[in-house]
Design a protein around this nucleic acid. Structure first.
Lengths: 335, 335
DNA sequence: TTGAAAGCGCTAACAG
DNA sequence: CTGTTAGCGCTTTCAA
């Protein structure tokens, strides 16, 4: 058992005081170069490992940040966290992760842990189960900056990084219309989540603008999974006035729709056009490839981290990361 | 600015000593039920948040664990971490994440941070760039338990959770042979990484056992990405004695091979059979679906966490998680 | 340029 | 059952 050596012991060895050791190790300019070097040499020689815990307690900065997401195994979140970690690590911060599994209780527990750990920042995307996020105000009261992404609540005074869901949905729907589809159905998510409301709005505006008003918009809520997309599509195909395209707020339900349509003998994109959202890796490997929207999650994560690091605590920043419509064969109806 | 209230202040309010507050909050049985309840009531009323940092410093247990992986945005790792987080959180532990990006330097920096943070456990999968992992011994000297997965180094005295790469590769290769393929090429990874050596061994044993010895095994190393698989497959198709199947140690290079074969006008599975490794989500969505091996990452993550929590520090455990051959159309040659 | 002293908030002997 | 005391290892005044 190798006990960790402390600055007190290093001080004895170097015949200096603990404060000098502390200063030397952190490159305090008051300490002359020569002592700094010799102190560091001794530190290396004796395998000194600074105790971050003690340092945190004394300084009041933990150098720990935390991120709360619904689940980490989604392509969007894991890429975002990856980008975030990269930038934070570079700056000497560590990153704690929590999964809310989309329930409010887990999210609250996660925030409590963040408070107890005295993290220096919280990054989060709200759980679907969170209807009231005002409890997050405790974080601001304790001066812990909060950065939101994806599922944000704009009524709270927190900085956020988002993509323009409205615009992306608008452009995607317009693209679908331009390729000759007319009866376009929209799969949406729970109505209280902002990103889904925004995507819905983009879809509606594109339709309204197109002048194809004789086909009423058709929105089906809460269709985010492969299974629900599959079932919903089968329902649609049975109805008298069939849809000829689906614009889904989720790649997974779009996939379900694609599989259902294919199972019923429809050809994509000839009979039915399909587009999803998020550009999950599989969308590029499907046959035909599925049109989707790349949210640029790595860049979002990096931006979140930088927003925190630049440390302008007073202002609320709302950054918008450009997204990209990825057009693939699933919406390219032959003329 | 709401300063955090401390047990000292709670003590004043409750007319008790700080130690009693501390004990009451942690349900020490010495404290009678009645005081425990009233202390907790006051704590809630005043929004007390226990300072984990201070508690860690004093008790010597940080309740923080850390995980180091090459990158978090791979399906295998994000699922594994997800499973790990779930079990750890349940037990009151937090989880720090680091990405090595497969370089040794990043990995060393990650371990250093773990040491400085005085984590209670480290979970890790070695970076491809790590040739010598003996530096990890500092963790054991400091009595920090290490749990390895996927890319493990069995020469170190650390517990590990793996799948049986040898057996999975053997069974997959045998399956390919049984379906009538004869000239089976194997795409492997860097030779110094155990999992790839094991997969290679399984492939070779299945071939040796099959009696189709007139076709020499053909192994191509360092083919793990889509791009490399694509290029390698094109090379193979140009050579005089063409391969009729690929068993790849990576789904991504298998995908590259599939795309290359298709581009050259070959049909899968009729002309060429293809199987990958890891059961990435996209393998199920390809046309034809790609045969692969499900490593059960969520279960691996949970097992790792439980291994730590059960806390049998003395012994080195080597757990093997069952994997599953997922047979899809890409290896089902018509008779 | 360096050191002494105090204390971050908590836990754990030890004593009562 | 409860309180007193003494730190965990570090940073940071303040004084020299």
């Amino acid at each position: 058992l190798q006990k960790n050596i402390t600055i007190h012991e290093l001080a004895k060895i170097a015949s200096l005081s603990p404060s000098t050791i502390s200063r030397a190790l952190r490159d305090n300019p008051m300490i002359p170069e020569s002592t700094r070097l010799s102190v560091k040499e001794i530190a290396v020689k004796y395998g000194y490992r600074p105790n971050s815990i003690a340092s945190s307690l004394r300084s009041g900065r933990s150098m720990i940040t935390g991120v709360i997401v619904p689940r980490i195994n989604r392509n969007f979140f894991s890429n975002l966290i990856g980008g975030m970690e990269e930038v934070l690590f570079e700056a000497g911060y560590t990153l704690l992760i929590f999964q809310s599994h989309d329930t409010h209780n887990n999210e609250v527990a996660g925030v409590r842990t963040m408070l107890n750990m005295r993290v220096d920042a919280v990054f989060m995307s709200l759980a679907a189960g969170t209807l009231d996020s005002s409890y997050l105000n405790e974080l601001s009261e304790k001066k812990i900056p909060v950065f939101m992404f994806d599922r944000v609540d704009d009524s709270l005074p927190f900085s956020s990084v988002k993509m323009n869901d409205y615009e992306a949905a608008y452009l995607c729907t317009r693209h679908i219309i331009q390729h000759g589809y007319r009866k376009i159905v929209h799969f949406s998510g729970p109505g209280h989540i902002m990103v889904y409301r925004e995507r819905k709005r983009g879809y509606l505006d594109a339709l309204a603008e197109s002048g194809i008003s004789k086909y009423k918009p058709l929105i089906i809520n809460n269709i985010l999974t492969r299974e629900k997309g599959f079932t919903a599509m089968h329902e649609l195909l049975k109805s008298p006035e069939k849809a000829d395209a689906v614009f889904s707020a989720s790649d997974f339900s779009a996939l379900g729709a694609l599989l259902a349509a294919r199972q019923s003998g429809y050809s994509i994109p000839d009979d039915i056009g399909i587009a999803g959202f998020a550009n999950e890796p599989f969308t590029g490997f499907l046959q035909p490839g599925m049109t989707s929207i790349d949210q640029n999650p790595v860049e979002m994560g990096k931006t979140l981290a930088r927003l925190f690091l630049q440390g302008d605590l007073k202002e609320v920043h709302r950054r918008v990361i450009p997204s990209k419509l990825i057009i693939r064969d699933s919406t390219l109806k032959p003329a």
